[in-house]
Computed example of a mutant assay.
Amino acid sequence: MALVDNLKKLIGQGKKAAAQNSDKIEKAVDKAADFADKKTQGKYADKIDKVQDAAKKAIPEK
């Protein structure tokens, strides 16, 4: 049971860190989406936008 408790604790710490740095994470998601869109010459822009939106929704709020 100690392993499960430790994992829960680590997940909680990760969520807290993500929430504290949500603005940086959003910028990284935007940069990655722009890079992918550029490399594919806009061919998959709609799919990239969907993934970008999903990634931003997954970021915990402060």
Rank of each mutant, 00 (worst) to 15 (best):
V29Q: 00
K39R: 01
Q52T: 09
A2W: 00
K62M: 14
A17Q: 11
K15W: 08
D5R: 13
D34C: 05
A17H: 05
K16C: 05
K15C: 09
K24Y: 07
K57H: 14
D37E: 15
Q20W: 05
V29H: 00
A19M: 08
I48D: 04
Q41T: 14
I48P: 03
L10E: 12
L7F: 13
S22W: 08
E61T: 13
K39H: 01
K50E: 12
I25C: 08
A28F: 04
D30F: 04
K47L: 01
A19H: 08
A32E: 12
D34R: 05
D23S: 12
Y44I: 05
Q20A: 15
S22D: 06
L10D: 04
I25V: 13
N21P: 09
Q13N: 15
Q20F: 07
M1A: 13
K57P: 12
K16M: 08
K16V: 07
K27G: 08
V51H: 07
K47Q: 10
D46S: 15
A18C: 04
D49N: 05
I25S: 06
M1E: 08
A32S: 14
A32K: 03
T40S: 09
V51C: 08
K50G: 02
A58V: 10
A45E: 01
N21T: 09
D53P: 01
T40P: 00
K8M: 11
A2I: 09
Q13D: 12
I59A: 01
K31N: 12
A33M: 02
I48H: 04
Q41I: 07
A36L: 12
A18V: 02
G42M: 07
A45V: 04
A19V: 10
D49Q: 01
V4H: 03
I11G: 06
N21S: 13
M1T: 10
N21L: 09
K39Y: 00
L3P: 06
A55D: 02
D34A: 14
K56Q: 07
Q41W: 12
D46R: 14
K16F: 06
D30W: 02
K38Y: 13
A45S: 11
F35D: 13
K50M: 08
K31E: 12
I11R: 15
K15L: 13
A36T: 13
K39N: 03
V51K: 06
G14M: 14
D49W: 00
P60R: 04
Q52I: 04
L7M: 14
E26T: 09
E61F: 10
G42D: 00
A55Y: 02
Q13S: 14
D30M: 00
P60T: 02
A32W: 11
D30P: 04
Q20N: 15
E61C: 00
Q52Y: 08
V51Y: 12
F35H: 07
D23G: 10
K57T: 09
D53I: 00
D23P: 06
G12S: 10
K62C: 07
A58N: 08
D53K: 02
A17K: 13
I59T: 01
D34L: 09
K39A: 00
K38F: 14
V29A: 03
K50T: 07
Q20C: 03
Y44N: 11
G12C: 08
S22I: 06
K47R: 11
K24N: 06
A33E: 09
D34W: 10
K24T: 04
K27T: 09
Q52S: 10
D53C: 04
A2H: 02
L7I: 15
K16N: 11
K56W: 10
D34E: 15
A18F: 06
I11L: 13
A55E: 03
K15Y: 11
I11N: 11
K43R: 15
